[in-house]
Design a protein around this nucleic acid. Structure first.
Length: 271
DNA sequence: CAACGGACCTGCCTGC
DNA sequence: TGCAGGCAGGTCCGTT
């Protein structure tokens, strides 16, 4: 499931191959993704040079001189660099061709991902405009979390998964960060002390950075630009481990659902 | 504004 | 063997 570390891994993988190159064409086989792929994407993008490959939250941003391509991997999406001419496989919905270089191929079985174009400033795009801070940059800390949590009864796990609060934290890393910080996922966000939020902010940063270092987490679909899985799943402390012993204290991890999302925590280590 | 449920979609797994 | 049903999950959107 692509969360921030997986998207960042893909960004780092594809950037050296497409940065500075001109798009030779775009092939859309299935335009019905989360939102329709713009019908004019081929006409717009062909001839444009990819100036930079950046990331905002879980969106990949391919910047050109006249606008930017936004790619979201949804839950099951992947972007791979393949040899031009490699026949498309099932769910290979969009190809970005480059002259004399690898083809960037978007595959997404569940089609929750998106491929969008914006001619305006990326940060003013409707989907990005209201996003919260990047957790790995300055501007994200315990004080910010504590301030936004005021008077909110929502579980702290849902709170940190809210992209208006902080971007990039999905279900897997929310579970992991709360374990690292020793906080029970169901606690009301507004009832948590500043000091505890400072610890949580640090844990979010730590778990995301560690996961990037391992190339992300692969449970089923996720692969990087070369089709290789990540390895962070070997270090998961609680996600997917309800009923198994806590790696820290041996107690049996508990499972529950919060906002319809699988949640696991240690009743001893997390309070 | 906050909170929550529904919707989107396919593949995998379980149970009958 | 076949089929129905549940689950996974990012995130927008509509409703309360």
């Amino acid at each position: 499931m692509p969360e921030l570390p997986e998207v960042e891994t893909v960004r780092r993988g594809i950037a050296p191959h497409i940065q500075g190159r001109a798009v030779a064409g775009v092939i859309v086989r299935q335009p019905l993704l989360r939102w329709p792929v713009p019908a004019a994407i081929d006409a717009i993008l062909t001839g444009q040079v990819i100036r930079a490959v950046s990331r905002r939250g879980k969106y990949l941003v391919l910047e050109t001189g006249i606008g930017a391509l936004l790619v979201h991997l949804g839950m099951s999406g992947s972007l791979r660099l393949v040899d031009p001419g490699l026949p498309p496989a099932k769910h290979d919905h969009v190809d970005f061709l480059f002259t004399g270089a690898m083809t960037l191929r978007f595959n997404d079985p569940r089609r929750f991902g998106s491929v969008l174009w914006t001619a305006e400033s990326v940060h003013e795009h409707a989907l990005l405009r209201r996003l919260g801070p990047e957790p790995l940059l300055d501007g994200f800390d315990g004080r910010l979390l504590h301030g936004l949590a005021r008077n909110r009864a929502t579980p702290v796990k849902s709170f940190i998964m809210d992209s208006k609060v902080v971007v990039g934290v999905g279900n897997i890393y929310a579970n992991e960060a709360l374990f690292l910080a020793g906080i029970r996922p169901a606690r009301a966000a507004g009832a948590i002390a500043l000091k505890t939020y400072e610890r949580l902010a640090g844990s979010i940063r730590t778990v995301l950075q560690d996961a990037i270092g391992q190339g992300g987490t692969t449970l089923r679909d996720y692969v990087n630009e070369r089709g290789k899985p990540g390895y962070f799943q070997q270090q998961l402390r609680v996600y997917g481990r309800a009923g198994l012993p806590c790696r820290a204290c041996g107690a049996t991890l508990r499972g529950l659902r919060i906002s319809n999302r699988a949640t696991a925590f240690c009743p001893v280590c997390q309070r």
